[in-house]
Structure formats: structure tokens, C-alpha cells
Amino acid sequence: MRRVKDARYPDALFPVWRYHPFFTDTDEPVDVADITHRRHAIIETVFADLIDGPLAHMPSGRFGANSAWILCAAIAHNLQRAAGILAGGAHAVARGATLRRRLITIPARLARPQRRPILHLPAHWPWATHWLRLWRNTIGHSPPATAPT
């Protein structure tokens, strides 16, 4: 049994605790078993991201093709997590589908009128600041001048 202070009651006269029971078949002490189970919960989230994303469409029944697909999926997942951390805010812990929807699949276009690049971002796009932070943290400078579309 693990006890955690309940954050919903910060001004309580006495500390309020929540208890989280868990079952295990290991011989580890409770605190070590709790850490092991939390690590397992993290990997389950990674598996869920991969299954909802690239692993939903395994290409063939051939081992070599599936092996290459899984390798590409792992690389893409790691790049996506790094992009989320570089974008900051809630994107640092967001799921893969959220990162794809908010940062990767952006409704923008790059134009070069008069041979000067201009980035056309949507006028009221709610994640523009996060995307621009990702750009600056990755490239090292601001993107080409932005023009709302």
C-alpha cells in the first residue's frame, strides 16, 4: 500500500492522504516494487503510443519488412518525444497523437515572393508559440518572417 498526499486539499488542517493499493508477486520491498510498477506504467504508455500510431499498420507478413518498420517507428517516436520537449509546455508530456496533430501536421506553407522566404501560418492557430519555440530550439534562430493566412 502506498500513501500520497492529496493535492486537492492543500489548506487542510491535517494532511489528507490517498492510499493506492497494488498487488505484486515479487519479493522486493514495497518502495522498490512501487518504483518498478511505475516504470512499467511508463513503458505501457509508450506501447500505447506506438500501437495507436505506426504499429497500427504493419506492412507485411515478412520479418525483414516488419523489423525495418518497427525500427523506423522507434526512431520517429524518439524524435517526436524530443520535439515535444523542445516545444515545451504541455507538449513535453503529451501523447504521440497530440504531438502529431498540434506540432507536426501544421497548416502552413513556405513562399518565396521576391526571393525572400515567408512562412504563412494560420492567423489564429493556438499552438503557434509552441511551434515557434520548437523551431528556435531546433534551428537556433527564428523562422522566416511569418505572414498570417
Rank of each mutant, 00 (worst) to 15 (best):
A74I: 11
R39A: 11
W131H: 00
S142T: 05
P122F: 05
T98Q: 06
G61S: 11
A74K: 07
H141K: 02
P54Y: 10
A65L: 05
W127E: 14
R81H: 09
R136T: 10
Y9I: 09
E44T: 03
H130D: 14
A147R: 15
S142Y: 06
R62A: 09
C72T: 13
H57Y: 15
G140L: 07
S67N: 04
R18Y: 02
P54I: 07
R39M: 13
L86C: 05
A68N: 06
R8L: 04
V46Q: 05
L55V: 10
W69K: 03
R81F: 04
A65T: 07
A90H: 14
R8T: 00
M1C: 03
H77K: 01
A68Q: 12
D11C: 01
A128P: 00
R101Y: 03
D25C: 11
L132E: 05
P29T: 01
F63T: 02
P126M: 06
L103Q: 00
A145F: 06
A94W: 14
H40M: 04
R81S: 08
N78K: 13
P126G: 03
I42A: 08
D34Q: 08
A94I: 12
A68M: 11
S67K: 12
P54K: 11
C72R: 15
A65G: 07
A83G: 00
G89L: 11
L99T: 10
V93G: 07
H141I: 05
G140H: 09
N66W: 02
A145T: 12
A33V: 04
R112M: 03
L121I: 07
F14L: 15
P144V: 01
D34W: 15
T26F: 10
I139N: 00
Q114Y: 06
V46I: 05
I42N: 07
L55H: 13
T24D: 15
H40N: 08
L132D: 08
L134M: 00
A48H: 14
L86D: 08
P107K: 01
I75H: 07
D27E: 15
V93Q: 11
D34H: 10
G53K: 03
H37A: 11
S142V: 02
Y9A: 08
T105A: 12
L121Q: 01
A92E: 14
L13N: 12
A82H: 14
T26I: 02
R81A: 06
H37S: 03
W125Y: 06
R8G: 05
R101D: 06
H141Q: 06
H37C: 02
M1W: 10
A76L: 13
I35K: 01
S67Y: 11
P54F: 12
N137S: 14
G140K: 13
H77V: 01
A123L: 12
D34S: 13
I106Y: 12
I70Y: 04
S60T: 09
R8H: 01
H120K: 08
E28C: 09
S67E: 06
L99Y: 01
R18W: 02
A123F: 02
I75P: 00
I85F: 07
K5D: 12
H40I: 06
I70W: 11
H124S: 13
W135G: 01
T129H: 08
A97H: 13
T24V: 12
H57C: 12
F63I: 15
P59C: 04
A76W: 14
A12T: 00
R39Y: 09
G61V: 00
A41I: 09
L119K: 06
L132T: 05
M58Y: 04
H141W: 02
